[in-house]
């Protein structure tokens, strides 16, 4: 059985608490898709909800709003990891609920 939990913890800790060009507060806001205004917030929300629709103009607008490329890189990574984390946590909670009344044999767990 694969176990990515420890690796995920290290990834998130590095993204949110390690050194970076964007401040920890900016990276956390991107991770949570919360509290970001203007073009930067729009880019983060698009990464979370409709990444396939991102265009050159979205990235250019984030630059015009004051972000350099390293900050855009960091915040995009945080936004993507944050949304994927929420998706996984939601699914695991549903799995826990399903298992509560599941009388599975030990080797099926």
């Amino acid at each position: 059985m694969s176990n990515i939990k420890e690796g995920q913890r290290e990834l998130v800790k590095r993204l949110l608490e390690g050194e970076g060009y964007a401040s920890p507060a900016q990276r956390l806001a991107a991770f949570n898709n919360s509290g970001l205004d203007d073009a930067v917030g729009q880019l983060v929300t698009k990464i979370v909800n409709r990444s396939f629709a991102i265009t050159d103009d979205d990235v250019i607008a984030a630059k015009k709003a004051g972000l350099d490329e390293d900050r855009i890189f960091e915040m995009a990574v945080c936004a993507a990891v944050g949304q994927a984390t929420r998706q996984q946590e939601s699914a695991l909670a549903a799995l826990d609920a399903a298992m509560e009344d599941q009388h599975a044999s030990p080797d099926s767990r």
Binding site: L43, K46, I47, S51, D56, V59, A76, V77, A80, V81
Partner: peptide, 11 residues
């Protein structure tokens, strides 16, 4: 769900 978002964001 991480990698695909970054692929599309970064083009």
């Amino acid at each position: 769900n991480v990698i695909t978002r970054l692929a599309d964001c970064f083009g």
